[in-house]
Design a protein around this nucleic acid. Structure first.
Lengths: 143, 143
DNA sequence: AATACTATTGCAAGTAGTTACAATAGTATT
DNA sequence: AATACTATTGTAACTACTTGCAATAGTATT
Protein backbone atom coordinates (compact mmCIF):
# COMPACT_ATOMS: atom_id res chain seq x y z
CA UNK A 1 0.00 0.00 0.00
CA UNK A 2 2.38 2.66 1.20
CA UNK A 3 5.66 3.67 -0.42
CA UNK A 4 7.34 2.61 2.79
CA UNK A 5 6.40 -1.02 2.49
CA UNK A 6 7.55 -1.03 -1.07
CA UNK A 7 10.95 0.33 -0.15
CA UNK A 8 11.26 -2.17 2.66
CA UNK A 9 10.73 -4.97 0.15
CA UNK A 10 13.35 -3.64 -2.17
CA UNK A 11 15.90 -3.15 0.59
CA UNK A 12 15.19 -6.67 1.71
CA UNK A 13 15.95 -7.99 -1.76
CA UNK A 14 19.23 -6.09 -1.83
CA UNK A 15 20.15 -7.48 1.56
CA UNK A 16 19.58 -10.98 0.28
CA UNK A 17 21.98 -10.28 -2.58
CA UNK A 18 19.49 -9.88 -5.44
CA UNK A 19 19.56 -7.12 -8.03
CA UNK A 20 17.11 -4.27 -7.96
CA UNK A 21 15.83 -4.07 -11.51
CA UNK A 22 13.12 -1.74 -12.83
CA UNK A 23 11.13 -4.83 -13.77
CA UNK A 24 11.05 -6.10 -10.21
CA UNK A 25 10.29 -2.68 -8.80
CA UNK A 26 7.34 -2.18 -11.09
CA UNK A 27 5.82 -5.58 -10.37
CA UNK A 28 6.19 -5.00 -6.66
CA UNK A 29 4.56 -1.61 -7.07
CA UNK A 30 1.59 -3.11 -8.89
CA UNK A 31 1.11 -5.64 -6.11
CA UNK A 32 1.36 -3.00 -3.42
CA UNK A 33 -1.04 -0.65 -5.12
CA UNK A 34 -3.64 -3.33 -5.70
CA UNK A 35 -6.38 -4.17 -3.28
CA UNK A 36 -6.84 -7.90 -3.22
CA UNK A 37 -5.93 -10.55 -5.73
CA UNK A 38 -4.53 -10.05 -9.20
CA UNK A 39 -4.01 -12.62 -11.91
CA UNK A 40 -0.60 -12.71 -13.63
CA UNK A 41 -2.20 -11.19 -16.70
CA UNK A 42 -3.71 -8.29 -14.79
CA UNK A 43 -0.35 -7.69 -13.17
CA UNK A 44 1.33 -7.84 -16.55
CA UNK A 45 -1.00 -5.25 -18.06
CA UNK A 46 -0.61 -2.80 -15.21
CA UNK A 47 3.13 -3.24 -15.03
CA UNK A 48 3.56 -2.74 -18.75
CA UNK A 49 1.75 0.59 -18.52
CA UNK A 50 4.32 1.69 -15.98
CA UNK A 51 7.26 0.17 -17.82
CA UNK A 52 6.70 -0.21 -21.54
CA UNK A 53 8.83 -2.97 -23.01
CA UNK A 54 8.38 -5.21 -20.02
CA UNK A 55 7.69 -8.73 -21.28
CA UNK A 56 5.34 -11.47 -20.20
CA UNK A 57 7.96 -14.09 -19.30
CA UNK A 58 9.68 -11.58 -17.06
CA UNK A 59 6.46 -10.88 -15.19
CA UNK A 60 5.83 -14.58 -14.64
CA UNK A 61 9.42 -15.11 -13.54
CA UNK A 62 9.25 -12.13 -11.22
CA UNK A 63 6.06 -13.36 -9.60
CA UNK A 64 7.62 -16.76 -8.99
CA UNK A 65 10.69 -15.08 -7.62
CA UNK A 66 8.78 -12.78 -5.28
CA UNK A 67 6.75 -15.69 -4.08
CA UNK A 68 9.86 -17.75 -3.36
CA UNK A 69 11.27 -14.78 -1.51
CA UNK A 70 8.09 -14.50 0.51
CA UNK A 71 7.40 -10.98 -0.72
CA UNK A 72 4.21 -12.01 -2.46
CA UNK A 73 1.44 -14.41 -1.56
CA UNK A 74 0.08 -16.83 -4.12
CA UNK A 75 -3.29 -18.51 -3.93
CA UNK A 76 -5.25 -20.97 -5.99
CA UNK A 77 -8.64 -19.69 -6.98
CA UNK A 78 -10.91 -21.65 -9.26
CA UNK A 79 -9.43 -24.41 -11.34
CA UNK A 80 -5.69 -24.22 -11.44
CA UNK A 81 -5.32 -20.48 -11.76
CA UNK A 82 -2.85 -18.73 -9.47
CA UNK A 83 -3.42 -15.22 -8.18
CA UNK A 84 -1.02 -12.99 -6.33
CA UNK A 85 -1.14 -10.30 -3.70
CA UNK A 86 1.05 -8.73 -1.08
CA UNK A 87 1.26 -10.49 2.25
CA UNK A 88 -0.16 -7.74 4.37
CA UNK A 89 -3.29 -9.30 5.72
CA UNK A 90 -3.00 -12.90 6.80
CA UNK A 91 -5.97 -14.76 5.47
CA UNK A 92 -7.16 -17.75 3.49
CA UNK A 93 -10.07 -18.45 1.19
CA UNK A 94 -13.26 -20.40 0.90
CA UNK A 95 -14.21 -20.64 -2.77
CA UNK A 96 -17.56 -21.90 -4.01
CA UNK A 97 -16.88 -24.52 -6.67
CA UNK A 98 -20.20 -23.73 -8.31
CA UNK A 99 -20.46 -19.95 -8.56
CA UNK A 100 -16.91 -18.96 -7.66
CA UNK A 101 -17.92 -16.76 -4.74
CA UNK A 102 -15.11 -16.33 -2.23
CA UNK A 103 -15.08 -15.86 1.50
CA UNK A 104 -12.06 -14.84 3.55
CA UNK A 105 -10.94 -16.87 6.52
CA UNK A 106 -8.76 -15.19 9.11
CA UNK A 107 -5.43 -16.82 9.67
CA UNK A 108 -5.87 -17.52 13.35
CA UNK A 109 -8.59 -20.06 12.66
CA UNK A 110 -5.89 -22.20 11.06
CA UNK A 111 -3.11 -21.49 13.51
CA UNK A 112 -3.93 -24.43 15.76
CA UNK A 113 -4.08 -26.77 12.79
CA UNK A 114 -0.74 -25.58 11.47
CA UNK A 115 1.05 -26.12 14.74
CA UNK A 116 -0.51 -29.56 14.83
CA UNK A 117 0.96 -30.28 11.39
CA UNK A 118 4.32 -28.99 12.48
CA UNK A 119 4.24 -31.20 15.52
CA UNK A 120 3.16 -34.35 13.70
CA UNK A 121 5.02 -34.03 10.40
CA UNK A 122 7.78 -31.48 10.90
CA UNK A 123 6.43 -29.41 8.00
CA UNK A 124 6.39 -25.66 8.60
CA UNK A 125 3.38 -24.21 6.78
CA UNK A 126 3.88 -20.93 4.96
CA UNK A 127 4.23 -19.35 1.60
CA UNK A 128 0.86 -19.80 0.11
CA UNK A 129 -2.43 -19.13 1.67
CA UNK A 130 -4.78 -22.01 1.64
CA UNK A 131 -7.90 -22.27 -0.44
CA UNK A 132 -10.81 -24.48 0.54
CA UNK A 133 -13.34 -25.47 -2.09
CA UNK A 134 -16.96 -26.21 -1.39
CA UNK A 135 -20.48 -25.00 -1.93
CA UNK A 136 -21.67 -21.63 -0.72
CA UNK A 137 -25.06 -21.46 1.02
CA UNK A 138 -26.85 -20.33 -2.13
CA UNK A 139 -25.49 -23.09 -4.35
CA UNK A 140 -26.27 -25.78 -1.80
CA UNK A 141 -29.95 -25.07 -2.26
CA UNK A 142 -29.97 -25.31 -6.04
CA UNK A 143 -28.25 -28.65 -6.14
CA UNK B 1 -9.54 -49.92 -8.28
CA UNK B 2 -12.13 -52.62 -8.81
CA UNK B 3 -14.44 -53.00 -11.74
CA UNK B 4 -17.29 -52.68 -9.32
CA UNK B 5 -16.49 -49.12 -8.32
CA UNK B 6 -16.09 -48.20 -11.96
CA UNK B 7 -19.52 -49.55 -12.80
CA UNK B 8 -21.04 -47.77 -9.86
CA UNK B 9 -19.67 -44.50 -11.18
CA UNK B 10 -21.08 -45.09 -14.60
CA UNK B 11 -24.49 -46.07 -13.30
CA UNK B 12 -24.47 -42.97 -11.19
CA UNK B 13 -23.83 -40.82 -14.25
CA UNK B 14 -26.72 -42.47 -16.05
CA UNK B 15 -28.98 -41.88 -13.08
CA UNK B 16 -28.12 -38.21 -13.17
CA UNK B 17 -29.11 -38.08 -16.82
CA UNK B 18 -25.70 -37.94 -18.48
CA UNK B 19 -24.58 -40.01 -21.43
CA UNK B 20 -22.24 -42.92 -21.08
CA UNK B 21 -19.64 -42.35 -23.76
CA UNK B 22 -16.54 -44.47 -24.42
CA UNK B 23 -14.46 -41.35 -23.71
CA UNK B 24 -15.88 -40.96 -20.24
CA UNK B 25 -15.60 -44.62 -19.48
CA UNK B 26 -11.97 -44.74 -20.46
CA UNK B 27 -11.00 -41.69 -18.40
CA UNK B 28 -12.82 -43.11 -15.40
CA UNK B 29 -11.01 -46.40 -15.93
CA UNK B 30 -7.62 -44.70 -16.01
CA UNK B 31 -8.40 -42.92 -12.75
CA UNK B 32 -9.60 -46.08 -11.08
CA UNK B 33 -6.61 -48.13 -12.19
CA UNK B 34 -4.09 -45.52 -11.06
CA UNK B 35 -2.60 -45.42 -7.61
CA UNK B 36 -2.36 -41.85 -6.46
CA UNK B 37 -2.32 -38.62 -8.46
CA UNK B 38 -2.17 -38.24 -12.20
CA UNK B 39 -1.67 -35.08 -14.22
CA UNK B 40 -4.12 -34.40 -17.05
CA UNK B 41 -1.37 -35.25 -19.50
CA UNK B 42 -0.62 -38.60 -17.90
CA UNK B 43 -4.32 -39.36 -17.94
CA UNK B 44 -4.52 -38.32 -21.57
CA UNK B 45 -1.66 -40.61 -22.58
CA UNK B 46 -3.06 -43.64 -20.80
CA UNK B 47 -6.58 -43.04 -22.01
CA UNK B 48 -5.45 -42.61 -25.62
CA UNK B 49 -3.75 -46.01 -25.48
CA UNK B 50 -7.08 -47.55 -24.51
CA UNK B 51 -9.11 -45.47 -26.94
CA UNK B 52 -7.13 -44.26 -29.96
CA UNK B 53 -8.60 -41.12 -31.43
CA UNK B 54 -9.47 -39.67 -28.05
CA UNK B 55 -8.48 -36.02 -28.07
CA UNK B 56 -6.87 -33.72 -25.51
CA UNK B 57 -9.76 -31.25 -25.14
CA UNK B 58 -12.13 -34.11 -24.44
CA UNK B 59 -9.90 -35.41 -21.68
CA UNK B 60 -9.72 -31.98 -20.06
CA UNK B 61 -13.46 -31.52 -20.38
CA UNK B 62 -14.10 -34.97 -18.99
CA UNK B 63 -11.86 -34.34 -15.99
CA UNK B 64 -13.68 -31.09 -15.25
CA UNK B 65 -16.97 -32.86 -15.66
CA UNK B 66 -16.05 -35.76 -13.37
CA UNK B 67 -14.80 -33.31 -10.81
CA UNK B 68 -18.03 -31.32 -10.92
CA UNK B 69 -19.93 -34.56 -10.54
CA UNK B 70 -17.80 -35.50 -7.52
CA UNK B 71 -16.54 -38.67 -9.21
CA UNK B 72 -12.95 -37.42 -9.26
CA UNK B 73 -10.88 -35.45 -6.79
CA UNK B 74 -8.71 -32.58 -7.94
CA UNK B 75 -5.76 -31.18 -6.04
CA UNK B 76 -3.25 -28.41 -6.50
CA UNK B 77 0.31 -29.64 -6.34
CA UNK B 78 3.21 -27.32 -6.95
CA UNK B 79 2.52 -24.04 -8.69
CA UNK B 80 -0.80 -24.02 -10.37
CA UNK B 81 -0.86 -27.53 -11.67
CA UNK B 82 -3.95 -29.65 -11.06
CA UNK B 83 -3.80 -33.39 -10.53
CA UNK B 84 -6.67 -35.84 -10.36
CA UNK B 85 -7.48 -39.07 -8.63
CA UNK B 86 -10.47 -41.10 -7.54
CA UNK B 87 -12.07 -40.17 -4.28
CA UNK B 88 -11.51 -43.42 -2.51
CA UNK B 89 -9.21 -42.42 0.29
CA UNK B 90 -10.05 -39.17 2.00
CA UNK B 91 -6.87 -37.23 2.44
CA UNK B 92 -5.11 -33.93 1.89
CA UNK B 93 -1.55 -32.85 1.19
CA UNK B 94 1.37 -31.05 2.66
CA UNK B 95 3.71 -30.00 -0.15
CA UNK B 96 7.21 -28.64 0.40
CA UNK B 97 7.53 -25.43 -1.60
CA UNK B 98 11.28 -25.98 -1.90
CA UNK B 99 11.81 -29.61 -2.90
CA UNK B 100 8.23 -30.61 -3.76
CA UNK B 101 8.09 -33.49 -1.28
CA UNK B 102 4.54 -34.36 -0.32
CA UNK B 103 3.02 -35.71 2.83
CA UNK B 104 -0.51 -37.03 3.19
CA UNK B 105 -2.84 -35.71 5.86
CA UNK B 106 -5.78 -37.85 6.87
CA UNK B 107 -9.14 -36.21 6.44
CA UNK B 108 -10.26 -36.46 10.05
CA UNK B 109 -7.61 -33.95 11.12
CA UNK B 110 -9.54 -31.36 9.14
CA UNK B 111 -13.02 -32.49 10.00
CA UNK B 112 -13.34 -30.20 13.03
CA UNK B 113 -12.13 -27.23 11.02
CA UNK B 114 -14.57 -27.90 8.21
CA UNK B 115 -17.56 -28.06 10.52
CA UNK B 116 -16.35 -24.82 12.05
CA UNK B 117 -16.34 -23.24 8.57
CA UNK B 118 -19.78 -24.58 7.87
CA UNK B 119 -21.07 -23.18 11.11
CA UNK B 120 -19.51 -19.73 10.69
CA UNK B 121 -19.86 -19.15 6.96
CA UNK B 122 -22.44 -21.62 5.68
CA UNK B 123 -19.94 -23.01 3.17
CA UNK B 124 -19.97 -26.76 2.83
CA UNK B 125 -16.42 -27.92 2.11
CA UNK B 126 -16.00 -30.63 -0.49
CA UNK B 127 -14.89 -31.39 -3.99
CA UNK B 128 -11.24 -30.70 -3.86
CA UNK B 129 -8.83 -31.88 -1.29
CA UNK B 130 -6.76 -29.22 0.32
CA UNK B 131 -3.07 -28.63 -0.23
CA UNK B 132 -0.93 -26.89 2.33
CA UNK B 133 2.40 -25.43 1.26
CA UNK B 134 5.38 -25.04 3.52
CA UNK B 135 8.87 -26.26 4.18
CA UNK B 136 9.64 -29.89 4.94
CA UNK B 137 12.03 -30.62 7.80
CA UNK B 138 15.01 -31.07 5.46
CA UNK B 139 14.51 -27.80 3.60
CA UNK B 140 14.05 -25.84 6.83
CA UNK B 141 17.65 -26.57 7.71
CA UNK B 142 19.16 -25.40 4.46
CA UNK B 143 17.43 -22.04 4.48
C1' DA C 1 34.98 6.58 -14.11
C1' DA C 2 36.11 2.26 -16.26
C1' DT C 3 36.11 -2.85 -16.11
C1' DA C 4 34.65 -7.34 -14.99
C1' DC C 5 31.36 -10.49 -13.24
C1' DT C 6 27.17 -12.66 -13.69
C1' DA C 7 22.15 -12.19 -12.42
C1' DT C 8 18.40 -10.93 -15.03
C1' DT C 9 16.09 -9.80 -19.14
C1' DG C 10 14.01 -10.21 -23.90
C1' DC C 11 13.34 -13.06 -27.70
C1' DA C 12 11.66 -16.98 -29.90
C1' DA C 13 9.85 -21.17 -29.64
C1' DG C 14 7.67 -24.55 -26.96
C1' DT C 15 4.09 -26.88 -23.75
C1' DA C 16 -0.36 -26.78 -21.24
C1' DG C 17 -4.98 -25.86 -21.14
C1' DT C 18 -9.41 -23.61 -23.20
C1' DT C 19 -13.15 -22.32 -26.39
C1' DA C 20 -16.37 -21.93 -30.51
C1' DC C 21 -18.70 -24.44 -33.53
C1' DA C 22 -20.04 -27.92 -36.68
C1' DA C 23 -20.22 -33.07 -36.88
C1' DT C 24 -21.12 -37.26 -34.34
C1' DA C 25 -23.34 -40.52 -31.65
C1' DG C 26 -25.86 -41.79 -27.15
C1' DT C 27 -30.63 -42.23 -25.61
C1' DA C 28 -35.69 -42.03 -25.68
C1' DT C 29 -39.55 -42.61 -28.41
C1' DT C 30 -42.14 -44.48 -31.93
C1' DA D 1 -35.51 -51.14 -36.19
C1' DA D 2 -35.90 -46.38 -37.51
C1' DT D 3 -36.23 -41.48 -36.16
C1' DA D 4 -35.60 -37.42 -33.55
C1' DC D 5 -33.44 -34.96 -29.96
C1' DT D 6 -29.55 -32.93 -28.19
C1' DA D 7 -25.43 -33.97 -25.20
C1' DT D 8 -20.89 -34.79 -26.29
C1' DT D 9 -17.06 -35.00 -29.29
C1' DG D 10 -13.29 -33.56 -32.64
C1' DT D 11 -11.24 -29.85 -35.16
C1' DA D 12 -8.92 -25.72 -35.32
C1' DA D 13 -7.64 -21.79 -33.35
C1' DC D 14 -6.70 -19.50 -29.34
C1' DT D 15 -4.98 -18.07 -24.50
C1' DA D 16 -1.93 -19.02 -20.58
C1' DC D 17 2.30 -20.15 -19.06
C1' DT D 18 7.31 -21.93 -19.48
C1' DT D 19 12.05 -22.63 -21.10
C1' DG D 20 16.67 -22.15 -23.52
C1' DC D 21 19.81 -19.06 -24.81
C1' DA D 22 22.16 -14.99 -26.20
C1' DA D 23 22.13 -9.98 -25.04
C1' DT D 24 21.69 -6.57 -21.43
C1' DA D 25 22.46 -4.17 -17.40
C1' DG D 26 22.95 -4.11 -12.15
C1' DT D 27 26.68 -4.27 -8.74
C1' DA D 28 31.37 -4.74 -6.87
C1' DT D 29 36.00 -3.76 -7.58
C1' DT D 30 39.71 -1.21 -9.27
Amino acid sequence: MTANLLETCMKELRLRGFRLTPQRMVVLRVLHEAHGHLTPIEICERAQEMLPGLTEPTVYRTLNFLHEQRLALAAHVGSGQLVYETGERDHHHLVCRKCGATHEIPHDLLEALFSQFQHKTGYQIDGMHVTFFGLCPGCQDHQ
